[in-house]
Amino acid sequence: MLPSRGVVFETGSYGDPAATNQRDYWRVAFQLVKRAKFDLGMLVLMSAVLIPLDIHLKDWLLSTKAVAVLGIAMSIFIGFRNTQAISRWWEARTLWGSVVNKSRCWADGLRGLLSKQQWQSARTQHLVQLQVAIAWQLNFELRNFWHPDLQLMRQQLLHQLALPVNSTVRSLSAQRAMAIQQLAEEQWISERGRIHLLEISDAMTDAVGGLERIRNTPIPPPYDLFVRVINWVFGTQLLLSFESQGSPITGILLFFGFLIAERIGAYVEGPFDQDGSSFSMPLNTICVGISEDLMPSELDYGRYRPSRNPVFWN
């Protein structure tokens, strides 16, 4: 039943759902222009050279039917590429969702399996901190890039765990596995509890492997080259065709539209980019969420403050 008019609703402290506001559209446009500056520069140069020249268009232009067929093919290729790019991005986000959930399960599992005294022990708290360290290390390894204050926070966390600064996701995961073995050997947990914690650890390993696959396997270079070349061929034909009809500006704008559409797909294919734009994933924000779930208010992020705005959320 819908609430009646005039009812005043209270606002919680959880923040609004992430969304792009219309006033931020210019920021998205700026990010696109910044990323595609080389392509846009080439478009401007090509337009400046071809439009003023008195060339014999019939020697350059394809037939109208050929241009139409090329346009259909271009739309299919761009649509397919963008669909695959979004699929890669969404799979990465789903896997990071699994990292978040399994991190919570790790802490909840320890709390449920151990006694109150054991849960409050420094040993158990180190196991919780270890999971947080794994999440941050995975963030940095996927991007090969970090905010200086977050890197300092990570070093301090590893120092608390008495682990080397050059620890990797693999070495930290091995530490987690050995910790599970020690809990079982010292009878802090039962065999069933050991299996439960190992299942959480295995699920984390699966998520890490999936994220590394996405990071290390770009779209096949021949396909990338083919789509980009055919896009420029089609765009050039559009430009010349509308120039022959006395509407060069229309040709430039259409060329610009196809160029940007193709470039968006190329940018979204890399969900772990370094520039913190809306093309990449909110890895820092996700890791802050994991940290606050497992270690509320214990970590100092320095000057870094997470944002829920998808335009600049990294």
Rank of each mutant, 00 (worst) to 15 (best):
G15I: 04
D16I: 13
Q22W: 12
Y25V: 09
W26G: 01
R27E: 11
R27P: 00
A29G: 06
A29Q: 13
K34D: 14
K37T: 11
V44Q: 02
M46W: 00
A48F: 13
I55G: 01
L57W: 10
W60I: 13
L62R: 09
A66F: 04
G71Q: 01
I72L: 15
N82G: 04
A85H: 08
I86K: 11
W89Q: 14
T94S: 12
V100F: 06
R104G: 11
R111M: 13
R111L: 13
S121F: 04
Q131I: 02
W136V: 07
Q137W: 07
H147L: 05
P148F: 05
Q155Y: 07
L157K: 05
L158M: 08
L163D: 00
P164G: 07
T168E: 03
V169N: 08
R170E: 14
Q181E: 13
Q182L: 13
A184E: 06
A184P: 00
I200Q: 11
S201G: 00
A203D: 09
M204R: 11
G210F: 09
E212C: 07
R215G: 03
P218S: 04
I230A: 03
Q237K: 07
S241C: 02
S247H: 15
L254K: 10
F258Y: 12
F272D: 04
S278N: 08
I290V: 15
P296E: 06
E298G: 06
R305N: 02
P306F: 06
N309V: 09
